[in-house]
Simulated scan of single mutants.
Amino acid sequence: MSDSYPRITIDLVLDRLTTKDALQGVLHAIFFHRLFGLVKPQTFEVLDVTMPGVANAEIEQLVKEKVDSFWKAMEGGPNKHGQVVVTFSEKRTRKSSWFQVYMGEEEIPWEQWIINAEIRQPKSDRDRQAFHSSLATTLTKSIETILIHTSSERGRTAVPLITNSSGISPFPIKVTVSVGGVEVSS
């Protein structure tokens, strides 16, 4: 298996008030630009930054579960660094190497989004205002990163042929949450 697929990293520094909304907004923005089925759009306002989203019960539930898992792990432990990783894969037929015998299907990643998140707490109202201003700029840059990658040659060619048009995504999606280097279950 080749590890040459694109890995896009988004770094966020959050506070307790913005963690859930910011993560939800970034995850929805990624899905908005990487789902290939019939996508009903919606928007999220996070610190006066309008972020695109997907109005789909399955995606909304997935995002909510992963953001809640991240939040609970951050609240419950001393570590304030975490990561949410979204991996898009394609299903391929697995064959044995010598006789080309069908061995089932395997998921081969074709793109990965890595959201590194750190929670800090501003000390005063003035710090909070500066912090939120900085986070709004970071969220805007995150959307730019998503747009630039998905519209780039590398971003377009990473997408495998779409052979299944049922559902909102023809590709398996895996979202993992880890805090302090330990994967957190939903």
Rank of each mutant, 00 (worst) to 15 (best):
M1K: 04
D3F: 08
I8Y: 07
I8M: 12
I8T: 11
I10A: 01
D11S: 07
L12N: 01
V13L: 09
L14R: 02
R16P: 03
T19I: 01
K20V: 00
K20Y: 03
A22R: 07
Q24N: 14
G25L: 10
G25I: 10
V26H: 05
L27Q: 02
H28D: 07
I30Q: 05
F31N: 04
F31K: 06
V39D: 12
P41Y: 11
Q42I: 14
L47G: 04
L47D: 06
L47C: 10
D48R: 14
D48F: 13
T50M: 10
P52S: 11
G53I: 12
V54K: 13
A57Y: 12
A57H: 09
A57E: 15
I59G: 11
I59C: 11
I59E: 07
E60C: 11
E60T: 15
E60F: 14
Q61R: 09
L62G: 05
L62T: 11
V67A: 09
D68G: 06
S69V: 02
F70D: 00
W71V: 09
E75K: 07
G76Y: 04
G76F: 05
G77W: 00
G77Q: 01
P78W: 01
N79D: 06
K80M: 05
H81K: 07
V86P: 08
F88W: 09
R92F: 09
R94Q: 13
K95F: 15
S97M: 04
W98P: 03
F99R: 08
F99D: 07
Q100L: 03
Q100F: 04
I108T: 15
P109L: 11
W110E: 08
W110Y: 15
E111S: 14
Q112W: 04
I114S: 00
I115M: 05
N116R: 06
R120Y: 02
Q121R: 02
K123G: 03
K123V: 05
D125L: 07
R126G: 05
D127E: 10
Q129C: 03
H132I: 01
S134I: 01
A136I: 04
A136Y: 10
L139D: 04
T140A: 08
S142P: 01
I143H: 09
I143L: 14
I143V: 07
I143C: 08
E144H: 10
I148S: 15
I148M: 13
I148C: 11
T150W: 09
S151G: 13
S152C: 13
R154D: 14
R154S: 13
R154H: 11
G155D: 07
G155I: 11
A158G: 06
A158R: 08
P160F: 14
I162Y: 08
V175G: 00
V177E: 00
V179P: 03
G181H: 02
E183P: 00
E183Q: 03
S185L: 11
S185C: 06
